[in-house]
Design a binder for these strands. Structure first.
Lengths: 229, 229
DNA sequence: CAACGGCCCCTAACACCGTTAGGGGCTATC
DNA sequence: GATAGCCCCTAACGGTGTTAGGGGCCGTTG
């Protein structure tokens, strides 16, 4: 009957046939396997057992598929527990956001510069704003703080998730690549780059956890200064 | 014949043969004209008056060309004056970094996630570290602060430089797109998204200058807390 | 002088890519 | 039974990055 049509209004009805959800899931699988550069419409089609042209019945563009993908990437986000100080909750938000992006291959590249707020993204944003306002931030500050956090996390993970050097893509571990990069800095001409030489180890420290945490703490400190006592 | 060829607008450096520099300059021109998506090896080749396959004599990959490009993008960076507090210099660094990226079309997308330190990038980093250490930051903190700033700026500009919506790409100005986005937020179901509805204007404020400045000040505040009095 | 070897560009081709046009079979409704 | 809409198909267009192999030019060398 007519009421079974999975049409526009309830776009996320779980269909058993070929739905936008199924396409998104297939794209997610290919992203994990081949990376963003290896994600093509033809492969997505093959993954769902269909020819490439058929995808355009369900999706306007590859861009639209990527929009769906970017929302799906945050689909299984778990919100931090609503306890403790606003600061702890803020920090935890940043950590989980980073963890979410790191969990999927090339996730940062997919999300980067894609302002396509799907339902999952909206839900997270809504919750985040709610906590910031409850903490005492003004409306404008809450909005900006949320934007600030996501800009930092995306910028950070984007660099973190990209190969440190051409050598890394070819088998070398992160630690080895970092050591190689450190060597590069250390052997620079010391008269023109004294600081790079001196800080070679600090600059190429492969411990991304503490590096991320450093920035996160600075952000939280900076925001805390906006609140009254 | 070959060296004085009236070859249209092809060669820009009179007398010089085809160098990596010339390739980079040509790529930069095409980037400005057609954006990153429209930057192809064939177009770069045509721009310098050559066929595509010839580029591979000078450059290993398109990736390597993009590495060169990302360094060239910061080639004309002017360092902030060495006066005033470390804080002012830090802020000015952030502003100029952003301005530099904004000045060239798709610059943020080119640089994003590309850790290819060319000579220009190294020079800026060297200077930045020097000032941070002079301000009293420890070696490790200086290195992390520098990383933090660039992660924020890149993340911010990446979002700023990408079209706010599909509508914006088609002619609409930033302000109009922002108004449309605000309308989208404002008409969301208020019972599930009360904060998004309430903060619709704050979330879609098109004034990127103050939004960027907000984050920058928070960063500076957070870093200031690391220093002794 | 002639031969060599490097530099630098060429043509041709491969294996892809996103996207569109147009066609056809299936199914549910009138 | 006819009709309309959904959903997939084949075929093709105009691109993409990249490689193989060939061939002039030119300075050096025997």
């Amino acid at each position: 009957m007519a009421e079974t049509t999975p049409d526009a209004a309830a776009s996320d009805t779980p269909g058993q046939a070929l739905t936008r959800q199924a396409l998104t899931a297939a794209a997610l699988r290919i992203l994990e396997r081949d990376g963003l550069a290896g994600l093509s419409m033809r492969k997505v089609a093959a993954e769902v057992g269909v020819k490439a042209a058929s995808l355009y019945w369900h999706v306007r563009n590859k861009e639209e598929l990527l929009d769906l993908l970017s929302d799906a990437l945050v689909a299984d986000a778990e919100l931090p527990p609503r306890e403790g100080s606003w600061r702890d909750q803020f920090l935890e938000y940043g950590r989980r956001h980073r963890a979410l992006l790191l969990a999927r291959r090339d996730a940062a590249k997919v999300v980067a510069g894609r302002l396509a707020p799907g339902p999952h993204i909206l839900a997270v944003l809504e919750d985040q704003l709610d906590r910031l306002r409850a903490a005492g931030f003004s409306d404008a500050d809450a909005a900006m703080a949320s934007y600030l956090l996501s800009a930092y996390v995306q910028g950070f993970v984007l660099q973190e998730q990209s190969p440190l050097s051409a050598a890394e893509a070819a088998g070398a571990t992160r630690g080895e690549a970092a050591r190689a990069a450190g060597e590069t800095f250390r052997t620079l001409p010391a008269e023109t780059y004294p600081n790079l030489v001196a800080l070679a180890d600090d600059l190429t420290d492969p411990d991304m956890e503490t590096r991320f945490e450093f920035g996160l703490q600075r952000l939280a400190d900076g925001l805390a200064a906006l609140l009254p006592a």
